[in-house]
Design a protein around this nucleic acid. Sequence first.
DNA 1: ACTAGTTGATTGTATCAGCAACTAAAACCG
DNA 2: CGGTTTTAGTTGCTGATACAATCAACTAGT
Lengths: 133, 133
Amino acid sequence: MLASVVVSRALDRDLQRQAGLTLAEHHLLAIVNESDPQGIRPTDLQLLSTLTKSGLTRAVDRLEALGLIASRVCPTDGRGQLLVLTAKGRQKLRRAAPEFFRSVARYFADHLTDRDTETLTVALERVASADRA
Amino acid sequence: MLASVVVSRALDRDLQRQAGLTLAEHHLLAIVNESDPQGIRPTDLQLLSTLTKSGLTRAVDRLEALGLIASRVCPTDGRGQLLVLTAKGRQKLRRAAPEFFRSVARYFADHLTDRDTETLTVALERVASADRA
DNA sequence: ACTAGTTGATTGTATCAGCAACTAAAACCG
DNA sequence: CGGTTTTAGTTGCTGATACAATCAACTAGT
């Protein structure tokens, strides 16, 4: 817990200074970026994020207000949306990347051996998906 | 990050239902409980907690209002305080313990092998203490 | 089609947390 | 000592988040 708080606070601070984004917001952009180019449904995004449903709604609103993501009504389900990055959003993400990766290395990855990383990845994946299933 | 959020949300939910305590509050009580019986200084408590200075002040206020911890002026430093658990605080902690440990097992520990646990403990300790040093 | 129930997403409200500015006590130092 | 700097802790303010209730759209069973 301490480790995750220390790391996420450091990343959050760096991102805010560098790109004006919260870690959570940056994470959302990153997930959207890596998902289906057609767009991702908020529900799916929520499962991959650290936010709850309502938290996600608000965060998406902010990102939309910043012009970083765009939404359109899902053609196959009138209740839902499809979220995609705007050009500006992709740019923001791309520009933030180098320093972000440096921060991740500095606060987290550099402190782990390759074996540590392997173990963490597998074990924490198991923990994270346990009660989401 | 996802793992830590999933676990801490689950623990938080269980603790609030069971004992009316936030995970952060429970954590503070646990730290105070394990520290010097003479009391612990807020600054030291802060280093072991996931809160910042101001967050700690508020959390301590709440716990004091609940009668779970008590503070007195530090005899060797007029600016500081010494925090101790009250009898009520110790009782609260003791009563919450069995179910809390079950929750920890269920959401976290049970998903790890002994080797995982060993690796996590060592590696994350390193991460957590990196920029606190 | 019509109703019942479910699911996707939003909103009202309350709380918690953090930053930055502040107060007060202690340590430092010429 | 007297003045400056550092450290301990608090507070005003703001923003983010969660929970619970709500609204809207889909699905199914009749």
